[in-house]
């Protein structure tokens, strides 16, 4: 049972207390939760699109099985996450309508094109690695139903990273041409990856941290990503396209070229290189199968 005043509620969540779907919660908390969790669900669903076309091109039976399973996981995550949003008061249909009309957002990385099989490896390895850092921090989310599903999601994401790393390993130890494909993909994805965790707003000024929807700040997540993955990337002999990237041994902090935050804002507000095409594709496939939902839901009614 949560306290009934906003002040006491904030104290509750800030001291590590959790909130259940049936508990009282301030309107602002509910609205922020819906927006945040909805964007997460949208990202899982839109994340399917850059990868699904590569299921059809996967170069071995094993890769095809693994990639299908990965994309299937993501569709399953979207389903789980949308259910949490539904309990907070926004039905799945409304969520999908807002997504395809461009009213709601999805993660920056899913607005970019996937050009080669190298991109498939980089996405599964590094995009999922960046994602799992954010998602692990959500295990401590003040909203308990969301924190609970994050356990399953994190567990599955950890397999995606292994799959991605394996794809990359096979290619960098393959032919020079394959190695080149990986380096080019890394060059394409580095900037979006550096933007992934958001701007450097201090945690104490971040409203999502204030409500303990997030349990860590953006920069902390990015530093964790760099700590974990820069050495691994370099170990494979790949070059990271940022001349300023280095670790300050005294502070333990990574320095890097400041990402273009205007570009990030521009991309996530619907102006990424692939935004229109992917939303158009999602809208078209939704329209084409609308009759199925009409027929089945009419029967259920």
């Amino acid at each position: 049972m949560t306290p009934r005043t906003e002040e006491a509620f904030i104290e509750h969540v800030q001291s590590g207390g959790q909130v259940e779907a049936t508990d009282w919660m301030p309107d602002e908390y509910r609205a922020r939760l819906v927006k945040f969790i909805e964007m997460h669900g949208n990202s899982e669903l839109m994340g399917v699109l850059p990868e699904r076309e590569w299921i059809l091109r996967a170069p071995t039976l094993q890769r095809k099985l693994a990639l299908t399973a990965k994309v299937q996981d993501e569709a399953g995550h979207a389903q789980l996450i949308y259910r949490v949003v539904e309990d907070l008061g926004k039905p799945r249909d409304a969520v999908l309508e807002d997504l395809i009309s461009g009213k709601s957002k999805f993660h920056n990385v899913f607005h970019y094109p996937t050009k080669t099989w190298g991109d498939v490896g980089v996405i599964a390895w590094l995009v999922d690695a960046a994602a799992i850092i954010s998602q692990k921090a959500l295990l401590k989310c003040s909203y308990a139903p969301y924190a609970r599903i994050m356990k399953k999601i994190c567990w599955e994401e950890s397999f995606h990273i292994l799959h991605g790393r394996d794809v990359i390993l096979a290619m960098v130890t393959g032919t020079p041409k394959q190695r080149e494909l990986v380096q080019e993909a890394l060059d394409r994805w580095w900037k979006p990856l550096m933007m992934f965790h958001g701007n450097q707003i201090p945690a104490e000024k971040d409203p999502m941290f204030h409500w303990r929807i997030k349990s860590q700040g953006n920069e902390e997540a990015r530093q964790q990503f760099l700590d974990g993955y820069v050495p691994q990337i370099r170990e494979l002999g790949l070059e990271i396209p940022d001349p300023k990237l280095r670790k300050d041994e005294a502070t333990g902090r990574w320095a890097y070229t400041e990402p273009d935050w205007d570009e990030l804002r521009h991309v996530v507000t619907g102006h990424g290189p692939m935004t229109a095409e992917r939303l158009g594709f999602r809208r078209a496939s939704r329209d084409e199968t609308a009759w199925v939902r009409d027929v089945v839901l009419a029967e259920a009614a």
Binding site: L45, V48, L49, R52, I55, L56, K64, T68, A69, V71, Q72, E74, A75, G76, A78, Q79, Y82, F281, R282, S285, T289, V292, R293, V296
Partner: peptide, 18 residues
């Protein structure tokens, strides 16, 4: 697997992928 991600229901994305 062409239906993965674009089936009429999310549940069918999962089923057809499987």
């Amino acid at each position: 697997s062409e239906w993965t991600g674009i089936a009429p229901f999310l549940e069918e994305d999962v089923a057809f992928s499987s």
